[in-house]
Design a protein around this nucleic acid. Structure first.
Length: 568
RNA sequence: CGGGGCGUGGCGCAGUCUGGUAGCGCACCUGCUUUGGGAGCAGGGAGUCGGAGGUUCAAAUCCUCUCGCCCCGACCA
């Protein structure tokens, strides 16, 4: 490919809308073009990379026994009504009407359609298992799209769905997908980690997210420094604390004045105690019920865990007015002792293990010291309710958990029979009984994987592509595009490299060398060959490795061989 | 949806407070000189100032409405 004929328009100045580095660099390198909020066109450079990522995904999916198909982006409301999600999905689902006023939506995911297909195609246990996937644009009307391709409304996704005869089969398929995903992200040259994830409303322990490790990631993950335990902070559980036995015959709680001190840190400083000596009481509304969640003063409530513990669908922090109604005190002085009887008290494991603590007194400007869980308030409902944090003990071994950030590029989970049962995707098993297929689903954000790679691999000068997903593998810079000898060498090299399976981009633009070098670094192709009169005088070209900055002078006739050896 | 900010040549911005014939840098086009890490000089093209309505002799600037975009938050298979 000749740069002078390629649609690659780099810009020196960073467009002001870009927050994260991958978005900035993709705009600067002329890879994407925004069409509307969260909706992008993939320009040729970006599409080349996306095509490569897709090819890796296809190969590994097929190798793992999956078959590719393609479903429509537009889906009829009836299917979503059958699964029950038409009413549940909310405004993230973009709905529309056709000319006959029938309702449709743009597919944010394809469980309904795939289940519809399979129920029409599958009759017998002999046809199972079947594992199907597609690579296609999805649309989710995100409340706030951001970070360019990282969180768009329209995005390219590989979504796969498996149907098995029984749980054991589904578990085996799940493991195969886990292994395939690991190979996919390894082949893409990414540093990543599979982590245990919350499976949302579906429940069950079978859910893993594949996280590309990057400080700019939107997800917090905890991983053990000793064993291979790693989990999304939404899900991560630290080892349960040992109970500290309370002193016998300890005095009853004592009220202490804490005028105008509300936040735990303020009260702790005022009383010369540590936040870890406190119990923080947060009030929530779960439907009609008011719930008090008790966590140690330095901890954060994990609302997902709390919702699971309660079996609640929707959970929201209580308003100031609701707090006053439940505690009889202004917000900031809530505590478990003497709460209104209709408030359900849920106690974090760590709090239940405390010997004594300071809590709010349910009275303005007052706290209680010397409160004993179990003696001064009931500990009937104990659960893990907090976010595990950096330094907590690992639940599986003697190691320590560490907090880091990641970008979710893949998510696999076992669905069970939720959709197959609701939509009648059943088959006759070996005993002749009608049985719903056991499903799993498996997603990879293709565009997000590309963005995550840039997020993880860049420097001050631009992108640093890993060879397997680079738009081109080699850039050939012509120092003097008017020099006949240089042109001849570049043309020959382009031919030979192409024949050897490389993808060269020849910068033959009428630009000064400095411009070409800087654009070369910005585009970030793995190798850059500089062809100019000065080197050719000695029959040499210079090759630079983008990732390491290593430069070598190589004889013209050895350059292709040198590159082939390095790219293997 | 709540809070904040921004819409002025392709991109980045000034001008708006205090109304008076639209400007700068980059990019683009032409020519000459240059050419191993973002060249110089000269010339040139390009903007209904997001849109609609209003005030005024006069509106990018003041008023009203509206649309879009960005940031923070709530939300998220």
């Amino acid at each position: 490919m000749r740069y002078s004929h390629a649609l690659i328009n780099t810009v020196r100045e960073t467009p002001s809308e870009a927050e994260v580095i991958s978005h900035r660099l993709m705009l600067r390198a002329g890879m994407i073009h925004k069409v509307a909020a969260g909706i992008y066109a993939y320009l040729p450079l970006a599409l080349r990379s996306i095509t490569k990522i897709s090819a890796i995904v296809r190969e590994e999916m097929v190798a793992a026994g999956a078959q590719e198909l393609l479903m429509p982006a537009v889906q009829p409301a009836e299917l979503w009504q059958q699964s029950g999600r038409w009413d549940k999905y909310g405004r993230e689902l973009l709905r529309m009407h056709d000319r006959h006023d029938r309702e449709f939506c743009l597919g944010p995911t394809h469980e309904e359609v795939i289940t519809d297909i399979v129920r029409a195609q599958i009759r017998s246990w002999r046809q199972l298992p079947v594992n199907l996937f597609q690579i296609q644009a999805k649309f989710r009307d995100e409340i706030r799209p951001r970070f360019g391709l990282m969180r768009g409304r329209e995005f390219i996704m590989k979504d796969g769905y498996s149907f098995d005869r029984d749980d054991a089969g589904a578990a085996a398929t799940y493991e195969r997908m886990h292994a395939a995903y690991t190979r996919i992200f390894e082949r893409c040259g990414l540093r990543f980690r599979p982590v245990e994830a919350d499976s949302g409303a579906i429940g069950g322990a079978f859910s893993h997210e594949f996280m590309v490790l990057a400080d700019s990631g939107e997800d917090a993950i905890l991983s053990c420094d000793t064993c291979d335990y790693a989990a999304n902070q939404e899900k991560a559980t630290a080892r349960a604390p040992e109970a500290t036995p309370p002193a016998a015959n300890a005095p009853a709680p004592e009220a202490v004045a804490t005028p105008d001190k509300k936040a735990v840190d303020e009260v702790a400083a005022f009383l010369h105690r540590e936040p870890t000596d406190f119990i923080k009481t947060l009030l929530y509304r779960a439907g009609e019920q008011t719930v008090a969640a008790l966590v140690r003063g330095d901890r954060e409530v994990n609302e997902i865990k709390l919702a699971h513990a309660l079996g609640a669908d929707n959970l929201a922090l209580a308003s100031d007015g609701e707090v006053e109604a439940a505690t009889g005190a202004p917000c900031g002085f809530a505590g478990p002792v003497g709460l209104a009887g209709d408030v359900a008290v849920w106690v974090d494991r760590e709090v239940a293990a405390m010997a004594t603590a300071v809590t709010g007194a349910n009275h303005a400007d007052t706290h209680l010291a010397g409160v004993q869980p179990g003696r001064d308030f009931a500990t009937d409902n104990v659960a893990d309710l907090i976010n595990a944090d950096d330094g907590d003990p690992c639940p599986r071994c003697a190691g320590t958990l560490h907090l880091s950030r990641g970008i979710e590029v893949g998510h696999i989970f076992k669905l069970g029979t939720k959709y197959s049962a609701a939509m009648g995707a059943t088959f006759l098993n070996a005993e002749g009984a009608e049985t719903p297929a056991v499903m799993g689903c498996y997603g990879i954000g293709i565009g997000r994987t590309m963005a995550a790679s840039i997020e993880q691999n860049h420097d001050d000068n631009g992108i640093v592509w890993p060879v397997p997903i680079a738009p081109f593998t080699v850039e050939i810079i012509l120092i003097r595009e008017t020099d006949a000898a240089s042109l001849e060498v570049a043309a020959a090299m382009e031919r030979e490299l192409t024949a050897a399976g490389h993808e060269p981009l020849v910068d033959d633009r009428k630009e000064r060398p400095g411009v070409k070098f800087n654009d070369g670094d910005l585009l970030g192709l793995p190798y850059c060959v500089t062809v100019g009169p000065r080197g050719l005088k000695e029959g040499k070209v210079e090759i630079k490795a983008r990732a390491t900055g290593e430069r070598v002078e190589v004889a013209v006739e050895q350059a292709v061989g040198w590159l082939t050896e390095r790219c293997a």
